[in-house]
Design a protein around this nucleic acid. Structure first.
Lengths: 180, 180
DNA sequence: CTATTGACGGAATAATAATTCCGTGAAATT
DNA sequence: AATTTCACGGAATTATTATTCCGTCAATAG
């Protein structure tokens, strides 16, 4: 995992891993007969450290929040914390996702989990397909990454994202008048 | 360029290129002694097809637009067209940017150009560092990509992005009261 | 105490890709 | 017509990495 963090997944060689682990290359190969199995194994630990968001977090995160705005507020705070934990690895995984199928799987799962949680947050507002796409776009890790690089405190960052999500909801709704 | 589009830059081998070109591997190597020079050469053509935005486009794009809102409107339309032309390759390049220095260079240039044009659009509003970061985040190609995948027309897409940029400006400004 | 098991890892091998070499032939020059 | 030049590309070479092989050793079972 350290090496994958330092130099990326696909560029790390089995020999690199063996050396860092202080064992022979053959030993690494025995435990992980191919890159896929190694990535899967790392994935377990990565997921633990990163704690991806899923609809299962819904009750914990949204407990007692009656309004959509209140839930969005909580959602943003969770997303911020999540990316604080995992943005680095999410981006690294993204770089290699079409070289390593297991990384693609993982990222799809993370994405699906996030989408589910967002749905829970705005469940009152009958989220349509376009709205969800827009919200997912705003909650993307690259957006967070750029916000994070800005000269902003965590609270400012969250406030801005909150504003953007709210704005997105209004914007999409205004363009899709309810069917008569 | 076709092969880079089909299977990515770093995964394409010189032999692949030679075969596709109907020549021997050595011939490709003579013209492009290393991957970097090949990428640079492709970059010329890619840039032509993609026409990255730069502050130089300012006069053409913003001609006669007196208000910030009007300029933003034009900006969004340009960005949308730009990504329509180039999002595919921008993303592919992004995947290999830390394997191929030349791709990194290229993307930095594109980014700088876009940032410059955005600055021109909001020049009236004394753009601060944080605001620019937020706007750049929203104008990121991955955001566009997700909006594009949504069930939206180009005009809807642009309208939403326009709303988001406007909202971002208000949001950042409200959080950074002018110094007394 | 001896036999068995199985993880270990250095070294050999295979696979893939980059890079060099060198003979060939077509075009340009004399 | 003879000579020079030079791009070409098949084949050999090198480099890198994955993968296999097999002898060694420590722990465990009998």
């Amino acid at each position: 995992m350290a090496l994958h963090d330092e130099q990326g997944v696909a560029t790390t060689t089995f020999a690199d891993i063996a050396e860092r682990a202080g064992v022979g290359p053959a030993t690494v190969l025995r435990h992980f007969p191919n890159l896929g199995s190694l990535v899967m194994a790392c994935g377990q630990h990565v997921a633990e450290e990163m704690r991806p968001l899923t609809p299962a977090d819904s009750t914990r995160v949204f407990a007692g929040q009656a309004t959509t705005a209140a839930r969005l507020e909580r959602l943003v705070s969770e997303i911020d914390a999540f990316y604080e934990r995992g943005s680095f690895r999410l981006i690294a995984a993204g770089n290699d996702r079409d070289r390593v199928p297991e990384l693609d799987e993982f990222l799809k799962m993370v994405d699906a989990g996030l989408e589910g949680l967002i749905r829970e947050a705005i469940v009152d507002d009958a989220p349509g397909d376009p709205l969800m796409s827009v919200l997912m776009a705003l909650c993307n890790v690259t957006v967070w990454q750029r916000l994070n690089r800005a000269n902003l405190t965590a609270l400012e960052r969250q406030a801005i994202l909150m504003d953007l999500l709210t704005c997105a909801m209004a914007s999409v709704r205004s363009r899709k008048p309810p069917m008569p």
